[in-house]
């Protein structure tokens, strides 16, 4: 079997922050996650705001080094990539990103043409106007000539996100991470962008890491799903299984959550069906991190931390009460 596009094993990212005078606290943004993304897959990472999804994407993009653990891209260790100029250059070409907020993802002082030329300039790749135009065409901005000289404030939110996608595709990457690609958009536009992403994936032979807190939206696009809670993976498996037979009470809660009607006001709020707040990333509760909100929690959940166990083929869940929950 081929090397996985992304291989992560027990990856942790702790941030040290100052609290008050000379005191420091450790924020466990990502606390030991493992995942394998195969080439051509759409791997979705879901979880509430603050669960560490964006941090995972920063690690995958090599923007920040992990505190510990192993990260490999097509078999190559990130540590080695980061210290080797040529490898890093190739890595920057093959791993691209679309960020959460299309409003701040594009430089307001640049025209769309300049934004799309930038990747070529950085990598000293020859380009011409027809290449730039075909990029715009591919993301559904037609006619492309009408957009080239516009500034970011002259196009709509959906169009901005399309430009971000075009920029990510410019270097013909292998992996694209998408951090909440539709969270800031109107409901009708959400669907358009998701469909566009599905089309582009086969056209450009992409591997996706899609981050979202709206699990139901991902039905059409996800191959694998990793559910994160407070920096940990609590369920992971093929999307089909997770949608049809979720095991963890948290995943069940996420699935029942309906995408909020107005994405601008409801953006990243706690999910309506799930009561309570996620725990603090500085002092996570002992035992299962979800026990403070879990309707099935018992003594064992408060003391011991559940390990991920295989409930079905390639489908893992970390919960002590699987039988009760599923019934």
């Amino acid at each position: 079997m081929n090397e996985a596009a992304i291989f992560a094993e027990d990856v942790k990212k702790y941030y040290t922050v100052k609290v008050g005078f000379r005191k420091k606290a450790e924020i466990k943004a990502v606390d030991g996650i493992s995942l394998i993304v195969r080439e051509g897959e759409s791997h979705c990472i879901v979880g509430e705001s603050g669960s560490g999804k964006t941090t995972v994407s920063k690690l995958v993009l090599g923007l920040e080094p992990p505190t510990s653990g192993t990260l490999k891209f097509f078999g190559e260790d990130l540590k080695e990539i980061l210290v080797d100029k040529n490898k890093l250059r190739a890595f920057r070409k093959s791993v691209q990103a679309v960020f959460q907020d299309p409003y701040s993802s594009l430089n307001p002082r640049k025209t769309i043409k300049e934004i799309l030329e930038k990747p070529f300039k950085v990598h000293q790749i020859d380009y011409n106007s027809s290449i730039i135009e075909s990029l715009l065409q591919d993301v559904g901005m037609v006619p492309p000539q009408a957009f080239l000289d516009r500034y970011v404030h002259q196009i709509s939110g959906g169009q901005r996100q399309r430009v971000c996608i075009a920029r990510a595709l410019a270097l013909k990457p292998k992996i694209v991470t998408l951090d909440e690609p539709t969270a800031a958009l109107d409901v009708t536009i959400k669907a358009q962008i998701l469909n566009l992403l599905i089309d582009l994936k086969s056209k450009y032979n992409l591997t996706y890491v899609i981050i979202s807190h709206e699990l139901p939206l991902l039905k059409g696009i996800a191959d694998k799903i990793t559910v994160m809670y407070a920096g940990k993976v609590i369920e992971q498996g093929p999307a089909k299984n997770i949608f049809s037979k979720p095991h963890h009470p948290y995943t069940i809660g996420l699935l029942e959550s309906i995408p909020p009607p107005d994405p601008k006001t409801a953006k990243e709020k706690p999910l309506p069906v799930m009561e309570g707040e996620p725990p603090s990333p500085v002092n996570p509760p002992p035992g299962c991190r979800f026990h403070t909100r879990c309707p099935f929690a018992t003594d064992v959940c408060r003391k011991e931390e559940p390990k991920l166990s295989e409930v079905e083929k390639e489908h893992f869940t970390a919960c002590f009460h699987l039988r009760n929950v599923v019934q």
């Binding site: 920057r92 990103a97 960020f99 993802s105 930038k118 950085v122 971000c164």
Partner: peptide, 25 residues
């Protein structure tokens, strides 16, 4: 801002980011 992160993901150098992305703003 995320466009600075985006430049970094593309592979732009610090000098490039400072003078071409930040300075105009």
């Amino acid at each position: 801002r995320e466009y600075i992160q985006a430049s970094r993901v593309i592979g732009a150098s610090n000098i490039d980011i400072m003078f071409n992305e930040i300075l105009p703003n």
